[in-house]
Structures are given as C-alpha cells and as structure tokens.
Design a protein around this nucleic acid. Sequence first.
DNA 1: CTGAAAGCGCTAACAC
DNA 2: GTGTTAGCGCTTTCAG
Lengths: 338, 338
Amino acid sequence: MTILDRWGEGVTATIYDVARHAGVSVATVSRVLNGLKVREDLVERVRETVLRLNYTPSRTAQRMRKSTSHLWALIVPDFENAFFTRVARGVEEICQPRDTCVFIGSSDDDPEKERRYLEVALAERVGGVVITPSSDTTDLTRIVSAGIPVVVVDRAVPNGAYDTILTDNMAGGRLGAEHLLGQNLRTVACVVGPENPTSQARLEGFLSAAKASPAIDIVRIERGNNRLDGGYRAMQRIIQSEARFDAVFVTNNLMAVGIIKALGDMLPERRNDIPVVGFDLDEIPLLSGACIASINQDPHEIGRIAGERILLQQAGTPPVCSIALRPTLVATAGLGYP
Amino acid sequence: MTILDRWGEGVTATIYDVARHAGVSVATVSRVLNGLKVREDLVERVRETVLRLNYTPSRTAQRMRKSTSHLWALIVPDFENAFFTRVARGVEEICQPRDTCVFIGSSDDDPEKERRYLEVALAERVGGVVITPSSDTTDLTRIVSAGIPVVVVDRAVPNGAYDTILTDNMAGGRLGAEHLLGQNLRTVACVVGPENPTSQARLEGFLSAAKASPAIDIVRIERGNNRLDGGYRAMQRIIQSEARFDAVFVTNNLMAVGIIKALGDMLPERRNDIPVVGFDLDEIPLLSGACIASINQDPHEIGRIAGERILLQQAGTPPVCSIALRPTLVATAGLGYP
DNA sequence: CTGAAAGCGCTAACAC
DNA sequence: GTGTTAGCGCTTTCAG
C-alpha cells in the first residue's frame, strides 16, 4: 500500500514515499529539495514525484535537524492598535521573502498573558522574538539563554542588553510642548499611558520643554490604559475636575481618539477649540478635530529594522544595538469642519 | 559535561538532561509533564529539576510524535483592516486557553501571496486554518487532504464543502437600501469591492431591495480595492462624472473612509449632506459624517465560531456547517457637528 | 554522486 | 509504576 492508496484520509506524503516512488534514496530527495548537486535525470524524477504525490516537506521535522526556524514571534501590547499592525507589516516585509511567518500575540499589557506567549515562543523554538514588553518585569532571559534572537521595539527594557528599536520619545514629548508653545497655548491637560518607559519618556520630554518662559501650565495629569476607553475616562475626569485647559497632550494614539470623543460628548460647544496633540494619529483614519497635531513615529520602519536585527543575530551578531528614530510632528486641521 | 556547564551558549535542556539530573528515565519525565500517574517523590524530583534546568519541552519534537499542533494559521485579505484584527481576537479567545497560537498572514488579496501562506501552513502542519479566500481560485484542497481542519470566514467558496462562517451579506445589502428608502434618498452612487462573493452579495442585496416603488435610482457603480485609497479614487471618479447623487452605498469599511475623505476634499460644501451607508463602520474609531449608517457584522463572533469549528473538526466532526450571521444596521450621526 | 544509517527531542508501546 | 526502545520526518555524516 503506497501513499497514493491512502489518499484522502488526511495523510501527507513523507520523504520516504517520494524516495520509493522515484526509485531513489531519501538522501537524494533531500538533496534535490535543498538544491544540492544531484544527477540531472534523478532531479527530474524526484521533482516529478514530488508534484505527483503533492509532497510538502514537514518543517517540524526539518526544524528538528537544522536548528533554524522559519517561524518568528511578535508580541505586542495590543494588536488592534494600528500602530502595531504596521510594525507587523514591517517585520513581514523581512520575513516574506525568506518564507518565514510571524505569529502575533497580543499581551494586552497583561504580564501573565505575555509570559504565556513567551513560553510558547520558547517551546516552539522560534527563530526570533520581536517584543514590546508589557512592563519592566518582563523576563526575556530564558528566551535569550535558549539562543533565540530577541529585539525589543517601542519600549526599552531598563538595564537590558537587547537590540532595541524605538522612537526618541523624549524628543517626541518635546516636539509636542514646542508645538503648543508656538501656538501660544499654555494651559494644558495631559493624559499619560501606563507606567512604562515609553509613556514616561514622552511625558518627561513634554514636561522639560514645557518649562519655557512663560512656561506651560500643566493643569492636570491623568493616567489611562492606552486604549480608547482609557482616554475617554481620563478626559471625563479632567472635565469633571473643572480644571480650565485650552489644549490636551496625550501619549498614545487610541487614547487621543477617546479624548476627542469625550470632548465631543461633554463639551460639544468647545470641542473644536481644544487642540489635541498626540502620537501616531496619522494611523487613525479620518481623525478629525479643530486642531490636531500628531507626533509621528514610523512603525513600519521600526518593524523592518527589528526584522533585520533578528536576521543579523541569527547570523551571529551580538545584540547590542539601540536605535532611536526621530519622530516628526505634523499639525493638521483634520478633515476640517464646515 | 552536563547541560549546566553549557549554560549560556544558546542551548536548551532536553528531556534527557532532565532525566539524568533527576535520576529517572525519560519516560518518567514525559509522564510527569503530561500528568500521568507517577510516584509522588519522583514527580517532585522531576518538577524540581525541570525548574532548575529551565527546561521547556520542544513543541517541535512533540508535534512529530503526537500529530496535534498548537499552531493555527489565520489568513486574511488585510490585517490592517480592523475588521480582521477583531476576527483574530475571536479566534484567539478560543486558542488562548488551549495554549495554542495563531500566525497571521495578510494575503493583500493577492492569490500568489495567499498561496505562499497556505504552503507555509501546510509545511508547518498547523492544527487548523481559518481563511478569508482572496478569490474563487483559492485552492484549499491540499490543506484539506492533509487532514488539516479548514474554516472559511467572511467569504464563501463557491462549491466548496468547507465550514463557512459569514454574515448574510445579501441581507446586509438590503438593509442598506431599506435605510435609504426610509430616508427617502433615491439617487444613490455605489462603490463595490473586488469581484468576490461577499462584495457581490452585498451589491445584489442592495440592488434587489432598491427595486421598490418608487425605486432607488442607481446613478453609478464603481469598483474599488477594499482599501482607503480605492474608496477615495472611486469617489473621485463618481464626482468627476458629474452624476447627481444624494447618498452613497459602499460595501466595505475602509473604502467608506476613503469616500468620506474624497467628499470632504472635493465637495466640501456638500460633505455633510451626503449620507454614506457602509459596512462595519463601527470598527472605525471616531468616524464622523453628516449622516452615516453602518451595517454591522460581528467579527469577534465570526472568529470565535471559526475557532470552535476548528476544534470540532479536530475532534472528527466533518466540515459541513455553513453559518450566516445576521447583520444589524446602526444609523448614527457620527461624532456630530457643531 | 548516491545510499545507508545515525540522530534531532519527544511519546507510547512494550517489557520488567 | 518505571525503564527501554522504536519510531515521527527530516538532514547529514560517512562509506561506497
């Protein structure tokens, strides 16, 4: 009984089936598949048999022998955030031509969920891990000591000797403050993300540049969860505090959306007079508002570089690079109002 | 030389290392790991050793023996479209508790790219494939004959005997037409996605319900690529044709964004008077417009059900179910204008 | 240049 | 209960 008789039962041909049907040894089949030197007529016979049996080599088995994996892990805080899907695109750009796939895990900023994804990445012996750590406590040492390349993106790990690709977040914060100063807006409410280096750096950059003279008056600083609802609620709290403010600075894109929504709901008469300055708002389609400025990172580029660093580490380059991309501020009137 | 001496060189402990250090056989280690009956003190010793050696079983090796895979593939036309990231969330909800991961491929509606992802899924011998086929020519037979569960989502495959989860798109189209009729809007331009069953059904549903009396006058039908730029350009063509229309019907979410952008750019004075009816606009944060109606699917539910069907197929259920979810129309004034 | 055979790390019979 | 061992499907020496 050959593989052909078992057709349709959910079986896949193995390299032995191919060898048998082609009348050669498995070694020869393997060589043909891997492009090594084999006599022309045998190559032909093997190729033909591969096609006839619909043979696809098992990567699982391949991975056991060679120890290179065609599977990478991308672990991000929120893959519903367009910023991270664009990072994923950047990584994909590197993977695709190498027949490599990326599995994506969304940690939702939950250290436990993140830990489980890291565990899976380790168990799968992936070829590389690209991660935005949920917090300072994220443990990447096991991955590293297993010899798996790791690249940290978007958020630095304090004291970590990892390849790191991120944006100069301090500079981003400063850019935001300078923009507001330029517009002569000096009474500002801030909405900041969870306590991680990125949120922190953006806020710090903002605060440092806000110390101009005359300085920006920071009327309130609220924390949020980097998602739409967090921004909405933070804005609610600010409005309810009855603090007076004439602009809002926010450290993340989705929270900006929530903020604008809250402004529309709670202060409809002022909604067009309160400029919002946030990060990566260009990833939000059609975001509209009276006066919005976006401090833009380049997520696609971040992903692409991360992918390249994975490749370099696979080739033996030690992980010591830290790349900070410069953000750019784009002021926009949004879609515009009549 | 034990595993401990090789520490830090990028090696991982194997089950043999654990067995040796714990003074038991590999079978015992395996049993402990898989929760089979083992003497208490041995369990203890193995557990302790596993921790000490930082041992993580290789799923690659596991997959070679058992043939169950903890890795699924999700292949969608565009994972930057929030609709599909929500589908992914639904699938994840099923996977997560089973320690299973999903790798996501974006076919970008390119049959060749899709074919490559399917090839990878097959080579990886994934535990299941959830796919939105890029076109009628998508070949899923190889996956199926390898015994891999397949669930088709969002777009049916004509004549395909696959589990299929989608929305009743005809009904969605009808809903759109009825909404416009109810508003007494009877001069409508349509923007339709690429030629696939889903776009087609939505248009057909719309056209059939548009034949009321008095009927809706379809002034123009344009095709687009289901992405923002496609909607923008389709709207440009419509406007340039100088056709008169007082509402727009569009079969996809991102194109609706493009349309609204084009309206704002090209007909700023009318932009608030032209209602747009589209699908899944609730996935677009803050989408605003004079009068928008969204025909909503439930992507999370689609993904969840798809995940469950994968599980059922893994358990032996033949793939014969076809589930059509009912869409709901939500009319909204968007963010509202002052 | 080709084939036979030894593993990669694990599980599951099969013996003890 | 526990240990020994034969594979899972592949790559890669090592002989021929």
